[in-house]
Design a protein around this nucleic acid. Structure first.
Length: 481
RNA sequence: UCCUCUUUAGCUCAGUUGGUUAGAGCAUCUGACUGUUAAUCAGAGGGUCCUAAGUUCGAGUCUUAGAAGAGGAGCCA
């Protein structure tokens, strides 16, 4: 008699002799009904105990959180909440759970409390659903790229270049922190460090991914990324997972096509494969919204929102067009924005992005061709427009409720232009010699983007705080677990 | 980093102009009941009121500093 998962048993739907299942007790009602969950599905299986025929001391140990092993018969349920249930023949306690101290009670908990108990929070319906969806999404990412001719590459996590310009970095060092070796002029002597130079945790695998795109053609990385920014928001983590495809001979239009196709593909995978968990989270959100005033409630349910993205084209808008829309929109004219849009060249704030996505277009938006001076050095410079304004082939994919889901660009492939840009921004040529080599030998048009995996999980699960879609969130002042 | 708010029982929260023994619901425990599914009914236990200093006859309540958490902003993915 092999142990089956709850998911397998519930899928069976026929009376079966001699089934065995192991899991954790969610509730034990009326000294008779055990709701058992083993993580294989959002659903519990009900195990019915004829308490008169069981040792009372044994039944006392069936507490919330205890691990148990049940054998019995799968039968049609007499109750209304489930179609099948197990009539228990034998019951074994595998691991007790002291109900006085076990933090996860059979009641609603706040997400803040569960964050402090992150090691146990996946024993709740909401977090088990989120993490199953996260796993499924991760698989869908690899599946998409694999089926579309991409190679997966692992870019280094410890990086020697600090020129990526994507934010503050975490230093990696083996030097004695109290007495670091010093050079003659009193600075820390990094030649004595483990790698013989100053090293950091990566903020992006893009530059390394470019090198592989320029030989393997279509590549992607999907790995951990670290930012030491002191940003305390519900959309930022110090450690997060980023998806970065990079493709040779692809221009910005192709990049937009890729980003849109990729997102639609992984979202529809989730719709096809994770219905139970999505329905549970959708219901949770609906209940949550009932407590909100009518105005703040969203027009679409969770599943409808995902379907909407899958079924509708992303709106592609140039920065210049976006500025025109924003300059003439009501909140700008009535000075409702904190930052009023007057001039071409202003950086868009999240209030402007939100207006475009949530009020004006009401669908995902790809903004492209940004002013050159507000974007990174490696982005492909356009010809100046007829008013002489310089833009780069950058793009941002904006999602309702999330904001910036992905950011990317066509890369500057012309050696002289790139060198000039680096000089202007004071970026060392010596340090990025290998990056410049790509432009020296067989340079070609190429493009890519970076997508924050947790932001995607937020969109799919409808969770409002990024700390609730990663197992152990790393944020400023917090590295518990 | 900036702005705002929060911190009281295991959890979620009340706590009046500063006043004597700090409350509720849920959870837990004990008992009753037994086809329940947010089980029900009765009872019980459970407190460093975030920390430190101060004002006061007296501080959960007021002041100052600090810590932690949340929301928003900036930065970004």
């Amino acid at each position: 008699m092999t142990t089956k998962t709850v998911a397998e048993l519930l899928a069976q739907n026929v009376t079966t002799q001699d089934v065995t299942v192991k899991g954790w007790v969610r509730t034990f009602r009326a000294n008779r009904f055990i709701a058992l969950n083993d993580g294989s599905t959002i659903n519990n299986i009900q195990c019915v105990v004829d308490f008169e025929n069981f040792d009372e001391a044994l039944l006392k140990r069936v507490t919330t959180g205890a691990a148990i092993h049940v054998t019995g018969e799968l039968v049609e349920s007499q109750g209304k909440g489930q179609s099948f249930e197990i009539v228990v023949k034998t019951l074994e306690i595998l691991g007790d759970s002291d109900s006085e101290s076990y933090p996860i009670q059979p009641k609603k908990h706040s997400f803040e409390f569960l964050r402090e108990n992150a090691h146990l929070r996946t024993r709740t319906n909401t977090f088990s659903a989120i993490m199953r969806l996260r796993s499924s999404l991760s698989f869908a990412v690899h599946k998409y790229f694999n089926e579309n001719g991409f190679y997966n590459m692992h870019t280094p996590i410890i990086t020697g270049s600090d020129a990526e310009g994507a934010g503050e970095m975490f230093r990696v060092s083996t030097l004695d922190q109290k007495k670091p070796p010093l050079t003659e002029d009193g600075n820390i002597d990094h030649t004595k460090n483990f790698f013989g130079k100053d090293t950091n945790l990566t903020v992006s695998g893009q530059l390394e991914a470019e090198t592989y795109a320029m030989s393997l053609g279509k590549v992607y990385t999907f790995g951990p990324t670290f930012r030491a920014e002191n940003s305390n928001t519900s959309r930022h983590l110090s450690e997060f997972w980023m998806i970065e495809p990079e493709v040779a001979f692809m221009d910005l239009a192709g990049n937009m096509d890729l980003a849109e196709d990729f997102m639609k593909s992984v979202l529809s995978y989730i719709l096809d494969n994770n219905q139970d968990d999505l329905e549970f989270l959708e219901k949770r959100l609906l209940d949550d919204e009932k407590t909100k005033p009518q105005l703040e409630r969203s027009e679409l349910s969770l599943i409808e929102k995902i379907k909407f993205v899958v079924d509708n084209n992303f709106k592609r808008v140039s920065y210049t067009e976006a500025i025109d829309i924003l300059r003439n929109c009501k909140p700008n004219k009535k000075k409702k924005f904190k930052y009023i849009i007057n001039e071409w060249g202003a950086d868009l704030q999240s209030e402007h992005e939100r207006f475009l996505v949530e009020k004006h277009f009401k669908c995902p938006v790809i903004l492209f061709d940004y002013p050159a001076n507000i974007k990174a050095f490696y982005m492909r410079l356009n010809e100046p427009d007829n008013e002489g304004r310089e833009t780069v082939r950058a793009m941002d994919v904006l999602f309702p409720g999330i904001g910036e889901m992905a950011g990317g660009s066509q890369r500057e492939e012309r050696l002289d232009v790139l060198k000039e840009k680096m000089k202007a921004l004071d970026i060392s040529e010596e340090e990025l010699w290998w990056y410049l080599d790509l432009r020296k030998y067989g340079s070609a048009v190429h493009s890519g983007f970076g997508l924050g995996f947790e932001r995607l999980v937020m969109f799919v699960t409808g969770m409002g705080n990024i700390r609730d879609v990663i197992p152990y969130p790393r944020t400023p002042q917090n590295a518990e677990f």
